[in-house]
Write a protein that binds this DNA or RNA. Sequence first.
DNA 1: AATGAATGAGTATTCATTCAT
DNA 2: AATGAATGAATACTCATTCAT
Lengths: 196, 196, 196, 196
Amino acid sequence: MEVFTIKKAQNDKYQKILQAARTVISEKGLDKTTISDIVKEAGVAQGTFYLYFSSKNALIPAIASDLFDTLLIEIKEKTASQNTIWDILHTVIEVSFSVTKSYKDVLVLCYSGLAIENTFEIWEKIYEPYYKWFEDQLHTAINQGEIPETINVKRTVRTIVLLIEHTAEQLYLSNVQEEAEEVKEHLFSFIQKGLK
Amino acid sequence: MEVFTIKKAQNDKYQKILQAARTVISEKGLDKTTISDIVKEAGVAQGTFYLYFSSKNALIPAIASDLFDTLLIEIKEKTASQNTIWDILHTVIEVSFSVTKSYKDVLVLCYSGLAIENTFEIWEKIYEPYYKWFEDQLHTAINQGEIPETINVKRTVRTIVLLIEHTAEQLYLSNVQEEAEEVKEHLFSFIQKGLK
Amino acid sequence: MEVFTIKKAQNDKYQKILQAARTVISEKGLDKTTISDIVKEAGVAQGTFYLYFSSKNALIPAIASDLFDTLLIEIKEKTASQNTIWDILHTVIEVSFSVTKSYKDVLVLCYSGLAIENTFEIWEKIYEPYYKWFEDQLHTAINQGEIPETINVKRTVRTIVLLIEHTAEQLYLSNVQEEAEEVKEHLFSFIQKGLK
Amino acid sequence: MEVFTIKKAQNDKYQKILQAARTVISEKGLDKTTISDIVKEAGVAQGTFYLYFSSKNALIPAIASDLFDTLLIEIKEKTASQNTIWDILHTVIEVSFSVTKSYKDVLVLCYSGLAIENTFEIWEKIYEPYYKWFEDQLHTAINQGEIPETINVKRTVRTIVLLIEHTAEQLYLSNVQEEAEEVKEHLFSFIQKGLK
DNA sequence: AATGAATGAGTATTCATTCAT
DNA sequence: AATGAATGAATACTCATTCAT
């Protein structure tokens, strides 16, 4: 339990280091980024890093958590006034793609972080509030008769989230030039059919 | 172009090193595996490694390529006698899940490799024959009237492959205990609806 | 400009490492001396070396600079009370030969350093104060009427310094057995004629 | 004795390797030049190198010897028709400077070679014919009454050769921009006075 | 809390040399 | 003589982490 707790210190230096880490890692990649690079960028001393992060690897969940907070907050804001699950779905796709595009270097980082010290559990923890929110939306949609009640809500949410995120990544992380709008449209339509 | 060519040397020592690398990296992870570990396991000299691989990172695409060859060969074999797209889809899911389960350590390795030196293009190259085969299946299904001809074959193939693989990974790489059969069934049904 | 500045840190560990390097390199030669040897002799950690020297090769100018400081200080001391240019010349030859003899291993090191990364400019920087002092002596000698004022002071100083140093090296670095006193006398007389 | 013998094989591949070594080392410096570079340039196999040279370091005396042969042959040719020691001296300076200029990279190599495995004796061996020829010239000059017979021929030859060579090196190896003609003139005049 | 000098374990890579063919 | 694949010893340098101040 303790292990999965993400300390979201609002402390000044904590934030400075986190931002510096994101900046530097985006530029150089995780492997080539040194603690020295990060603290230099953050303008703090070498030792200060270890007051806020137990190790270099501890940065990854912290950064990822930050990213998901951003994503979920934006999704919640933009869907607040929307009524149908289809509008919401459109918005989720839109926001996911735009966040993926903006944060693509950090996402690569998160991927490489995956492989470090079996941290898959921590990802579940990070996704949890996102899944929860999405499940609520599906339940509402069921109640509104937009989608059949026979649907397996939990599984379906995971499938949709997976589909949206990885499609966005495939689009922006590879150099394959595809029309983003076409990809998003196809994705929406595929999910829509899956929700029938 | 040249850069992305994957030399599938049939050379004795090349294969020995590749197998040894898979074995050792599966046990210890990429980061903690040293070239020394690999060559010891392979029974060749330190320098011999560099006759066949330009660097430690060059192992990853080689291993991944090997993995996909295995996957595609098995899929082709098992679907050879199958007639409907639905049987084929079941088989693809089945094989993908079983290969993912067997090779999960290698897959984690591939993920960590993702982050190394913008190698996304190389993944496209590796997936290419798989996509090609799958597109052929969809075209056949269209001709047989199993799925509508309005479908965007190229996009749909990518979506399905992405969905199957990442779902399998989510199941086997995380420690979330879920019923595999249930996951597969839900997945099949979701894709089936998407193909309508 | 900046590049050629020789940081003569008075720092404790810097001096320790420099002395240790001189000791070890004198014994084993530059090539066969490892950083590990040096830090062991100096009693500091491996990484500490790189806090003070950017690389193994960076040692050479540092050591050479040290050697020239020694040479010039001794020459200045011994010539302080001397009045004629001929007395001074005798002393310079004497000190140069004795320093060459004592530091012959370091000199070989300096030579091998010559070939590393076009560092000839740095040698000019190191010789500068020596040339300057010697030019002052010749000017005084001209004023005292000991040598003709038609002499090209700058060129002559370089010629004399070159002659003294390389003759001393030829004597002590090769194994050719020659009578040192005879060599020095001949050298003095050759230079004396050149100053006419 | 054996050690100092320089095998001047006229063999085709020997010459090819020697030339290739000079070319490559001039470009990259001795340290950064690999046997692999040399044999590639020479167009022979890796193992072939060791049929003609016992080791990488064995190249240096071979190259130096080659250089001195060139120098001495040219000097002998150009001085063949000259009668006074002063004409000869002018020619020696001229040729030495021009050869130094052409072969400056090889000279740096020879310097770095100096430091490798106490090879000073071998240099004496290489210089020997040059010294011998020069001594003959001085004796002739004495007989012709151009220079006093009180001169120490052996010592003087060494001094002159040293002076010419190192002055040329100082001029061409450093980046100090000086007027070559002025340097040569000053050098001639200094030696001329020394021969009085 | 903050610093930053010091640490030293850890390893990918190179390349001179060998030797079976 | 010639080859070039294979060898494996050898080491400079990095950088996460610590700790005295």
